[in-house]
Amino acid sequence: MLEISPRKVVQVIFQAREKQVAEAELRAFIGAMNEDEKASLVALTWIGRETYEAGELAEAIATAKAEASTPTENYLVNMPLFADYLEAGLEAIGISPADVEEDFFDR
């Protein structure tokens, strides 16, 4: 089960795509998350880059928690295509980033 709201993931994707302008804000946003949320972000990234399958979400989250040795914000922000992987990870588990984004900006 995903341990972060899709809305937060979409916010990270949005900030990551604006990285040149908002990298410090993105790092602070991720850094302020709890460990479960950080592990879910990492797991979604791994699913998006096809290190894990969507059905292995729980295993990916457990591995992310067990193997965390670098601050999550550094690990993810320094990863090429981070936003694309997150978006693909959400799609793989059946969540449409576009639908979440519409809801995010409609409020």
Rank of each mutant, 00 (worst) to 15 (best):
M1H: 11
M1N: 01
L2Y: 11
L2Q: 01
P6C: 13
P6F: 15
P6A: 05
K8I: 10
V9S: 05
F14V: 04
A16F: 07
R17S: 06
K19R: 12
K19N: 10
V21M: 01
E25V: 04
L26M: 00
L26A: 10
L26C: 06
R27P: 07
R27L: 05
A28I: 00
I30F: 01
G31N: 14
A32P: 00
E37C: 06
L41G: 09
V42S: 07
V42Y: 01
A43Q: 13
A43K: 04
L44D: 02
T45F: 03
T45R: 02
I47E: 08
I47C: 03
R49A: 01
Y52G: 09
Y52C: 04
E53N: 15
E56S: 07
A62I: 07
A62M: 05
T63K: 09
A64T: 03
K65A: 12
K65D: 08
T72M: 00
E73C: 12
N74H: 14
L76V: 09
V77C: 11
N78K: 08
P80N: 15
L81P: 00
F82C: 00
A83R: 06
D84N: 11
L86K: 00
L86D: 08
E87L: 06
A88V: 15
A88D: 13
A88P: 05
G89M: 03
G89T: 11
L90N: 06
A92N: 03
I93D: 03
I93E: 06
D99E: 15
E101K: 14
E102Q: 08
E102D: 09
D103M: 12
F104D: 04
F105A: 04
